[in-house]
């Protein structure tokens, strides 16, 4: 069994010592610090990104909140404006209506006055016609011409009697 050959022990131990320490030196001075650096850099990057994402999310939420607030304010403002406008228009309409009604009433009064004038005039010319008719009728019947004054008095009397 070659494993029990004592003469081979010293070279094996010496080279084990040399190679193991060589590997230990390479690992502890180069290999492991580098890998540790890589892993730390990656972790830092991921943590940084996550933090940035969280920050951005909160920023976006703030923006959304501001937007909603602005929207609510705009709605409120719009409602106020709408009410004001409605009130104003209502007032204007009422005013215009009142003016129109007033004008209408005035025109109606004027028209009634005109009608009354026309009626008086018409009644006035009725007397003339009646006098003419009376004179014509008297001439036909009696062959005499009655003067306008007599005829007028007769007509007036008749008109009074009949109301």
């Amino acid at each position: 069994m070659p494993q029990l050959d004592l003469a081979t022990f010293p070279p094996q131990l010496i080279w084990l010592l040399i190679t193991f320490f060589a590997l230990y030196a390479v690992m502890s001075w180069v290999g492991l610090p580098r890998v540790r650096g890589i892993l730390a850099a990656r972790k830092g990057r991921i943590d940084g990104d996550l933090e940035k994402a969280t920050q951005m999310k909160s920023e976006a939420e703030a923006v959304i909140a501001a937007y909603e607030k602005a929207l609510a304010e705009a709605r409120m403002q719009a409602q106020i404006t709408l009410r004001e406008t409605t009130d104003r228009l209502n007032a204007e309409a009422a005013q215009r209506q009142a003016k129109v009604a007033e004008e209408l009433a005035r025109e109606t009064t004027a028209a009634e006055k005109r009608i009354a004038e026309a009626k008086t005039q018409a009644l006035g010319s009725l007397r003339e016609v009646a006098i003419e008719v009376t004179r014509a009728a008297a001439q036909k019947l009696t062959g005499r011409d009655i003067d306008a004054q007599h005829a007028g008095a007769a007509v007036d009397q008749a008109m009074r009697e009949r109301g």
Binding site: T8, P10, P11, W15, I18, T19, A22, M27
Partner: peptide, 19 residues
């Protein structure tokens, strides 16, 4: 005796591959 043996060769190879 510090001879470089077949055992030492593979120890060195292990160090080289691991490094």
């Amino acid at each position: 005796d510090a001879s470089f043996t077949n055992s030492a060769l593979f120890m060195v190879a292990a160090v080289v591959v691991a490094s």
